[in-house]
């Protein structure tokens, strides 16, 4: 499914003294099967933007078209849209409330009107997708670690079979292992099921390693919308808005500053190592 956003504005507290323009003339298209990273510092409008993608927030002005249909038109099946665009909120583990993992994951599909049997089938499939085996089914979600709870929460959304999965800072507060687990799950899901993934993060490393397109928000506006290498080439601008480029960018820049002929478009550690080795070999170093 394709989500096209045109001239979207959103104002909080309209008509009050706290009036604040959270989104300012946003236009962008999310195409089927993309893996997009949305970055921006706290208050840049990231969360507000993604809450528009399934109609949870209604724009103050502007339009959103899903597969060409205007979602703000009367009679648009908004309820269906909420199932088609699955939204995983920040700290989703706080929204877990059922007594067992399986029951919690069944909540969404049951709400969609599926029978208990169908819902359980979906829930089991979703558990496999996030790497939770059967023996977690009967466990209380509250016995699990932070990373596991988060996987339960993500499975709860996946069980609704969304076409687009939107996650708001899914790795915040997790340790490196929990973070790698969650990002690994997303990568595999994206590869195997072709689901569209929109990942909101302020970790450049996460976004650099996984997304093929990055949208940078600042003060409610789209500052950059490009492939990672291009976005990270704007180091100074990113820093000036409270973000940073990934470490790899700093290494490559420092080397270029010393006259090394290494590419600026490198976004992963493996690519960086290859570039460095190439230069050393050319210089006659045996390695």
């Amino acid at each position: 499914m394709e989500i096209r956003i045109e001239h979207l504005n959103y104002i909080y507290g309209l008509g009050t003294s706290y009036e604040k323009k959270a989104l300012d003339d946003i236009s962008l298209t999310i195409r089927s099967g993309e893996f997009i990273g949305i970055i921006g510092h706290t208050g840049s409008g990231k969360s507000t933007l993604i809450q528009h993608l399934n109609g949870l927030n209604r724009a103050s002005s502007g339009q959103i078209f899903v597969d060409g249909k205007n979602i703000y038109e009367d009679g648009y099946p908004m309820r269906q849209l909420r199932f088609r665009v699955g939204l995983v909120f920040q700290y989703p583990e706080y929204q877990i409330f059922e007594t067992t993992v399986l029951k919690d994951i069944c909540f969404g599909p049951k709400n969609q009107g599926l029978s208990a049997e169908e819902a359980e089938g979906r829930a089991r499939a979703a558990m496999r997708m996030v790497g939770l085996d059967e023996h977690y089914e009967g466990k209380s979600p509250f016995e699990l670690s932070g990373g596991q709870k988060r996987r339960v929460a993500i499975a709860g959304i996946l069980a609704m079979n969304p076409e687009v999965l939107v996650l708001d800072e899914p790795t915040a507060g997790l340790d490196p292992k929990g973070r790698d687990d969650i990002l690994g799950v997303l990568k595999q899901l994206h590869r195997e099921s072709g689901i569209t993934v929109v990942l909101v993060s302020h970790s450049m490393e996460d976004v650099a390693d996984y997304a093929s397109r990055i949208i940078v928000l600042d003060k409610g506006k789209v500052l950059y919308d490009d492939i990672p290498a291009k976005v990270f080439s704007h180091v100074e601008e990113l820093e000036s808005i409270g973000l940073a480029a990934p470490q790899v960018t700093y290494v490559m820049r420092a080397l270029r500053g010393k006259g090394w002929d290494v590419s600026q478009d490198v976004t992963t550690q493996a690519e960086a190592a290859d570039e460095i080795l190439e230069v050393l070999r050319k210089a006659g170093v045996k390695c």
Binding site: P176, V251, I276
Partner: peptide, 21 residues
């Protein structure tokens, strides 16, 4: 023990593995 090391340390380690002294 599944801990990270700083990015630069890890990159240096990767280069060392490939023979950079």
């Amino acid at each position: 023990i599944r801990l990270d090391v700083p990015f630069v340390t890890e990159l240096a380690d990767r280069l060392k593995e490939r023979g950079v002294p």
